[in-house]
């Protein structure tokens, strides 16, 4: 099980180089990070996975982008929008993570989308920057939305990932702090451990339901 921060933004999107983010991640207890627009590699014992964040595009463009980068070994994540968009994205083979559910509308992720996510092994991302950096109404809304996601997760058992969306070292948090912040949305320690390993779970090849022995 690899403890992974599912989204960080190194230079030039952020103010820290990917090596420095990897060093900091190692100090904070992570085994790997998903870095946007960065080649994969290992720095300071931390595996850096290349991430592709797709946002503000129609479903057609999402499908073509997924086709293009399917075999590139990238972690492909799509920004959530309305319900029909999210269902279409979850149904697209090759999409790993659905992000930004806290900023989508209230009905963007319902029980049908949750069932589809569980069947297609698409993770829903919990963006902790909304809790860390948000204040008053925006934070309350994010906490409420995440609690709702966790209710669906308990029922349908779709993968969940945790990310800090760090654009700086100062946005990253220790794994211990992550567990504390996740307790605000009703996640206990096993839930947090499972969510921190969520990226590895969605990237692992699916187990076959039936194994032919001979």
């Amino acid at each position: 099980m690899k403890i992974t921060d599912a989204a960080v933004y190194p230079f030039p999107l952020g103010d820290a180089s990917v090596r420095r983010l990897a060093l900091e991640a190692a100090a904070l207890g992570y085994d790997s990070i998903v870095a946007a627009d960065t080649p994969s590699g290992t720095y300071g014992g931390v595996e850096v996975r290349s991430g592709l964040m797709i946002r503000d595009v129609p479903v057609k463009d999402v499908i073509s982008a997924v086709k293009r980068y399917k075999d590139a070994g990238k972690v492909i994540s799509v920004q959530a929008a309305n319900n029909s968009f999210n269902r279409a994205v979850i149904g697209t083979k090759g999409v790993h993570i659905l992000r930004g559910i806290q900023s989508a509308d209230k009905t963007a992720f319902d029980h049908v989308a949750a069932k589809m996510a569980a069947d297609n092994r698409v993770a829903v991302d919990i963006d902790l920057s909304a809790i860390i950096g948000g204040r008053s109404v925006s934070r309350q809304r994010a906490i409420h939305r995440y609690m709702d996601i966790m209710v669906l997760e308990q029922r349908f058992e779709f993968p969940v990932t945790l990310s800090t969306h760090a654009r700086s070292l100062l946005d990253m948090r220790h794994v211990r702090d992550i567990a504390g912040l996740c307790s605000l949305i009703g996640m206990d320690v096993p839930d947090v451990e499972r969510a921190l390993a969520g990226v590895g779970m969605v990237l692992a090849p699916p187990k076959q339901a039936v194994t032919v022995i001979a």
Binding site: S17, R19, R20, E24, S168
Partner: peptide, 8 residues
């Protein structure tokens, strides 16, 4: 402020 490493 930028956060780098010596390798960078």
């Amino acid at each position: 402020r930028l956060f780098l490493t010596k390798d960078d």
